[in-house]
Structure formats: structure tokens, C-alpha cells
Design a protein around this nucleic acid. Structure first.
Lengths: 252, 252
DNA sequence: CATGGAATGTGAAAAATTCACAGAATGATG
DNA sequence: CATCATTCTGTGAATTTTTCACATTCCATG
């Protein structure tokens, strides 16, 4: 029973990122604050949290913040990204070979992927590190130069790397999407890699939040007709819906 | 002047990982504890540290520990690793092409590398993410499968990847080192990669803490004679010193 | 040289944390 | 099922740390 309480406590702290002791007291009125303190002490020993004056902070959360500070786009439309990730994760089924693009949306998706027998290839080191926490997932990283802004690898001869690698489902995130230009991104060599994935993937899932619709970036890496599934956080504009229907793309 | 003090303070905390306020008071007798508190407050706001009761902890350090928890062993000999890193970083000079091995010791080194014009190749995604924080460092990652225990990439055709890549200085960490077996590690394909690096590197720097001396792991990736520089945290046993002298290896 | 703002020092006041001990729950064992 | 040992929990006082408000000093700038 004490074990369960600690588990719940940890869960709560990890999701909140930061808690005050008084908050926890309100949350668990059945136990004394001293017990909660001792629980925090335990969790600290396990390396899950740090205790601060008045409460505690999640270490995972702290590292994430620090990382975000460097890439400078913090969790902006985090709500939207989470919604997209929730929908997209349904297309992950055991035993598959999966490609996960770089990006904050796909990072959210990575956190939601169940710990099942999967092979996941990605071009994002941070996503790879997140995925490897799962015992049953084999993780592959494409090599290459690391882009400071996007935390994405590219420039390496990915073609050769993936010659005899099969991708069942690929999840790609687009920086922009319009009917005229298709799915676009801002980096040449990243576009190269994405195009390769588009060719290799049996099922292509595009993740786009609606703020990116009707915009264009320099490099097109896919057309609407290339994809099988389009995941968005909110309803698409009518003309986009129509185009998707025509292209036989499932919109979720 | 206050800026310099904060910088020094941060430096100190980052290297120690964890400090007590009384410790800082002893370190900086010229300023009051209140000033130090305010400095810590500042550093916390910058996302460098978390303040705890009685002192502060480095966030970078906390993340590292948590990461280490996922792999296998917690970063126990952190003092030793830091000492090694401090010595090793002297061999990093601007304009060079560098290889950094996976491991906690090399992770410590990565944190100390100055933000200068460098190309750094590594097989560790976590180290790559650490290095990319520097504006002037170009970071390359070898591709491949990610090893859950060591957070190291391997198994990919690294040979091809590095065909036309030159490495001026390579920093390799060994899991064990003995006169009979040389430098050894526990994973077959990682050893493969290391051997390749040994061949390619103009200058080979081996990082070994003394607790690993006189031990052996399954796979040998280098002999004492392969290396130019050996960095340790504490004096070597006499017979090892003698062997190093014979092999014309600089011991630091 | 005056002046505003930031940085610093001081001690009291206000937390929060620890500590030690006693009571309660748990669980293994004969 | 009773018993013993072990772990978990609650209480209030003691201790430690932190905060707060205010006075002072130090610079840079007009």
C-alpha cells in the first residue's frame, strides 16, 4: 500500500513537473505530511525527483526544460501536439518497423508509444533516448550531422543506410502544409531524408497542426497523395478536407 | 564583478554536481551568505541549478545521473571522472576533428569542452545533445542501433561512414584495462567501432579510472602501444607506469 | 558632483525540515 | 492463530535554513 502511494506520488510529480508539499497534503489527506516527506525522500533516492524547499521537482522535467532552453522553442502548442500524438499512437501496432521524424510533435508521440516489440528508426537523438527507456523497443538512429535548431540528423548517406531496411509505418512532421506546395520543411538535407522515407514507407502518416496549414517552407518533401493518413489537432479547412478525400487520405 | 562570481559559482557547482551553502561560504569568504543565496537564485532562474535545502544541485548533473540509472551503474566515481575530464580537455585544441566515445567519463568531458571551432564525432546520442549546445561545434553522430545499457550506437557500417573522415584526436573510454589484455570492453560491436577509431585517429587518448585497472572484459579494442596519451584520475601502479614508459605513452 | 539603480550586508521573523520516540500496521513463522 | 520482528506512520519539539525588510555601499551616467 505504501508502494502504491509512492507510485501515485511519483506519477503526479512527473506529470506536474513541480509540486509543493501543501499541494500533496491536499491530494492525500489520509497520510501525514511526515509520511509524504519520507516518500519524497525515497523518490529522491531513486533518482526520480529532487526535493526543494517546500516541495519537489521532477528530474525528467528539469532536463526537458534545460534542453528546450537550448533549442529555444519551448512547449508552445503543447496541447495541440499532445492531441496529435494521442491520435497518431493508434497507428503503432506491435511487431512493426517504424520511422519517427525529428520534432517536438514526434517527441510527444515518442513518449506515448507503448513498450511493445517494435523497431523504431529515428533521425532525432533526443527521441532515440526517450524510446530506449522502453525495454522492448529496438532503436535505430540515422547517422549524420546534428542540426542545432531541429535536433535532427542529416547529411549522411542515409540512402545506403536504409537500403535493406523496411519501414512499415513512417510518422513525419511537416513545418508547413499547403495544397499548392504540399508538405514542406526549411532544410535542404532534412528534406532529402524525408523524401527517402516517403519512398520507403509502406504507410505514411503526416502530423500537422492546423497553425501550419496554408503556409509554405522552401523544400517540399511530400505531396498529399503520397500519404495514407493525415493527423491534425483540429478540423481542417473545407478545401483541404475535399482534397484529402480526393487523394484517398484518411484524416484523423 | 558579480557576474564573474556567479560564473565561477556555476562552474564550481557544475563540476561538483552538488554543493552545500556552507561549502560555498568557505569558498568565497569575501561575500555574505545572503549574496550567495541571491546568486543561487539567479542561477536557478537561468535553469542551471536547482536549489535544495542547504545548497544546490546542478541540473546537468541530475540529468546525467538519471540517464545513468537507465543504463546500469549510477555515476558513482563522479569525482574521479571529473578529474579525468579536466585533464583530458587540455588535449582539445581549436580547429580539430575529434572523436568522443560513449560513456559517463566522456560525458563529463563533453560538458567541459570549450565552445570553439571544432568538429566532434561521437557514437553517443546523449553526448551529441550535450555538445550541440555550443554554438561553434559541429556535431556528427555515427548511426546504428542504440544499446540500452551503454547508450552507444553500433552495428551500423561505420567503416563506410568514416571512409573520408579524418580524426585528429580520439578520446576512448575503457571498461577495463590490464597489461595482458590491453583496453577492453564488454560489447562486441562496440569493440568493432572502437577498433576502427583506433586505426583512424592520429592521436589516441585513453581515459581510464584506476578502479578499472587490472581487470579484463571480453573484447580487446586497443593495446597500450596503440595510444599516445593515457589519462587517469590517480597514480598508476608502478608496473603500469613502467609499461607506459616503454610504450612511449604520455601518462597524465 | 549629484543621483538613481543595482548589489550587498545585517539581524530578526517566518518558514520548512529534521529528529526522536511511541503507536500502528504488516507479515512471516511456529 | 498467536507472536514476534520489522517496517511504516504520526506527533510535537528542536533545529536549521530561508526569507524579508531595510540600511548601506558601490558604480555608472547625466
Amino acid at each position: 500500500m505504501t508502494e502504491g502511494r509512492r507510485e501515485a506520488l511519483n506519477q503526479y510529480i512527473q506529470s506536474k513537473g513541480e509540486v509543493r508539499l501543501t499541494e500533496l497534503e491536499g491530494l492525500m489527506p489520509d497520510v501525514s505530511s511526515m509520511t509524504l516527506r519520507r516518500d519524497l525522500e525515497q523518490l529522491e533516492r531513486l533518482g526520480e525527483i529532487v526535493r526543494t524547499r517546500g516541495g519537489a521537482k521532477s528530474i525528467a522535467h528539469l532536463s526537458m526544460l534545460k534542453e528546450a532552453a537550448y533549442t529555444q522553442r519551448a512547449g508552445e502548442n503543447l496541447e495541440a501536439k499532445m492531441r496529435i500524438a494521442d491520435k497518431a499512437v493508434k497507428f503503432v501496432t506491435p511487431g512493426r518497423s517504424i520511422y519517427l521524424d525529428a520534432g517536438t510533435t514526434t517527441m510527444c508521440l515518442a513518449q506515448k508509444i507503448p513498450d511493445e516489440n517494435l523497431f523504431i528508426l529515428t533521425s532525432a537523438p533526443n527521441i532515440a533516448l526517450e524510446l530506449i527507456k522502453n525495454r522492448n523497443i529496438r532503436v535505430g538512429l540515422t547517422g549524420g550531422q546534428l542540426n542545432r535548431e531541429t535536433l535532427s540528423l542529416s547529411g549522411h548517406d542515409a540512402e545506403g543506410y536504409m537500403k535493406d531496411l523496411n519501414i512499415d509505418v513512417a510518422f513525419l512532421a511537416a513545418s508547413a502544409f499547403s495544397l499548392s506546395s504540399g508538405f514542406t520543411c526549411g532544410d535542404h538535407s532534412e528534406a532529402d531524408l524525408k523524401r527517402l522515407i516517403v519512398r520507403k514507407a509502406r504507410t505514411l502518416v503526416l502530423l500537422v497542426d492546423v497553425t501550419k496549414i496554408d503556409r509554405g517552407m522552401p523544400y517540399t518533401f511530400a505531396r498529399l497523395t503520397d500519404s495514407q493518413i493525415l493527423v491534425t489537432d483540429a478540423p481542417l479547412p473545407p478545401e483541404y478536407l475535399k482534397a484529402a478525400r480526393q487523394a484517398k487520405v484518411t484524416v484523423v
